[in-house]
Amino acid sequence: MKTMEEIENAKELQYLKAKKEQSFFRKLLRNRFAALGLIIILILILTAIFAPFIATHPPNAMDVTKTLLGPGESGHLLGTDSYGRDIFSRIVYGARISLIVGIAAVLFGAIFGSLLGLVSGYLGGRIDAIIMRIIDGMMAFPFILLAIVLMTVLGQGLGNAVIAIGVSNIPGFARLVRGQVLSVKEADYIEVTRSLGAKHGRILFRHIVPNSIAPLIVYATMSVAGAIISEASLSFLGLGVQPPTASWGSMLQEGKDFLVLSPGLATISGLAILVTVLGINLFGDGLRDALDPKMKL
């Protein structure tokens, strides 16, 4: 049975935790740039979810009699592309692709990278050396180049884009988590937990992981922005999502060929990428400052 003192201590801890969370959210939302970033992200998420209700036309419906129309012509808000497809509707549906690939690829990289980082940092020794040499090898490729090579081999498609960008994300997460583990694992309270007979799993997931979560969240947020750019880059090079699926990168690629006749297509699809990535970066910066301004990310 708990003593009164223990109950008081638990209440105090709960109160302090709630206060800390409150102060974090207040700090985050007081930062105007972060709030703007959050608004952009929310708009993107809502657009992706409610795309069928927001789009004015089916995104892949072609009309050869209405190709390369300007904004506002024939009921097309942002005009049409070279196949007569509604640009606005494709931009709306393109948000889905960007968001799906962005989040899924980062999750992929975060899960595998963090596991590698945890094992490497915690076990140390030869296993650490082997894992880190593999990570060093992966980091020897410029990010986009590794994704390009993987897509070339795996072939086009949404799932393959997630894998290619996800794999390219593994080294960053692995190094980050390993660094965190190394800095936490020698702490006194971990030593105490270990001496009390706690198992490796408990030490890792109850003590080390929660202490590494803040930089991980910030890094993951920033990585979503990078993954969205990577997806657009792959699609721009014709290696990403397969046509006729609407992707901002492939729309930009198509718009490049009609720059003189219809500069709108390239301009709008690129702006969609820029605003989205900017929103995520703004939010990521704010998140970092609210969690720990000294964080080196």
Binding site: S233, L252, L259, G270, I273, L282
Partner: peptide, 22 residues
């Protein structure tokens, strides 16, 4: 600088070509 780090450079390249070349 925040806009700069968020820039899809392939888009910027296309826009530069559109404005300064075309």
């Amino acid at each position: 600088s925040l806009v700069g780090v968020s820039m899809p450079i392939f888009w910027l390249g296309v826009m530069l070509a559109l404005y300064f070349s075309v």
